[in-house]
Design a binder for these strands. Sequence first.
DNA 1: ACCTTTTCTTAACTTAGGTTAAGTGTTTCT
DNA 2: AGAAACACTTAACCTAAGTTAAGAAAAGGT
Lengths: 193, 193
Amino acid sequence: MYSILKHAFNSISPITEDDWLLIEPLLKIKEYPKNDYYLTAGQTEEQIGFIIKGSFKWYYINKKGEEVNFHFFFNNNFVVDYNSFISSVPSSMNIQAMENSTVIHLPKRSKILELYSQSHTLERFGRIIAETVYIEGSLRMQNFLFLNAEERYRNLLKKHPDIFQRVSLANISSYLGIQAPSLSRIRKRISKQ
Amino acid sequence: MYSILKHAFNSISPITEDDWLLIEPLLKIKEYPKNDYYLTAGQTEEQIGFIIKGSFKWYYINKKGEEVNFHFFFNNNFVVDYNSFISSVPSSMNIQAMENSTVIHLPKRSKILELYSQSHTLERFGRIIAETVYIEGSLRMQNFLFLNAEERYRNLLKKHPDIFQRVSLANISSYLGIQAPSLSRIRKRISKQ
DNA sequence: ACCTTTTCTTAACTTAGGTTAAGTGTTTCT
DNA sequence: AGAAACACTTAACCTAAGTTAAGAAAAGGT
């Protein structure tokens, strides 16, 4: 059951057998029925999760009370408010299951820092994760800065066509930073070409 | 001369004397006259710099040939295309001096990775830097996602009023993700309140 | 199969911000 | 000081996207 996580680790950066043995006994599995919260605003993220089944949305509630999606998390990926996790500051966002989901919980931050101290290679692993997550965030930022709504839509369609099978257009429009009617307009415009 | 860098390091995360002695002999100082490039599109970022005097802009040239500022770097801060630096991929952006500037160059990526291997505490230091940089990027992203142009302007005015003394409004408008006339409109609107 | 609820699209109108170009200050250079 | 270059503002017009509300389509529940 945990081998899928080990495999995911290895695809980011090879993990030593010793390091894996430090981590494995601390893992736990948890189910999140659809619409359950992984994290709610005000909580401090203590743990990193790895999704083995399902998907989550990471969103913010704006001044008008609307959900603004910041990110989606899918199976075979980590789910975490990395910001809150790193800085141990309460999150201003929510993470909610969009489907019935299953998550492997890694040890909490304080325990992970302990493990880092015990193992130089694990500390390196932590560095590489942080760098990887930075690059992902940075690419998403560039996506927003340099592309307009239609380009962002085309980009998403090209890179994650599967998302459209699993996530409602209302959620996708919010993820693209636009309103639902705007997304409809864009889709109509494109379908006519 | 290098003590200012040591101090900057310590304010991010305490650095051991041994680690500092590994780094110090590898430092170099370089001058960048106003408008000189620290990095141009197509180059791969090899080094991290620490600005002891001056400022830089990090920008992208869009399809219409206009500069779009992504970030400003000021004295007492690092200057780096962290994305290109981490992934050793050519940068798609430029970093250019906005004032006559002086920079301490840290060793290049390959050398830094060597140092990480030699010292667990230095590896930890690298992890903390990556995490810190991630949080900065993430805050800037949220700034864009959740605030409109006027709110971003007010935010900048509140958090970095000094920028307005050192950077032209053309550069600032680009940093805020808007055109110069829009920034003028916003400034006029606010001044009437 | 039927009703309810949710999801998606469409239309009409509004608004923030983009575009272009002209105009007014400021620096800077000789 | 005068010319040139640059920085900033303003105005008039345009466009992409927001807003609101109504309708069509699809999905779910009984």
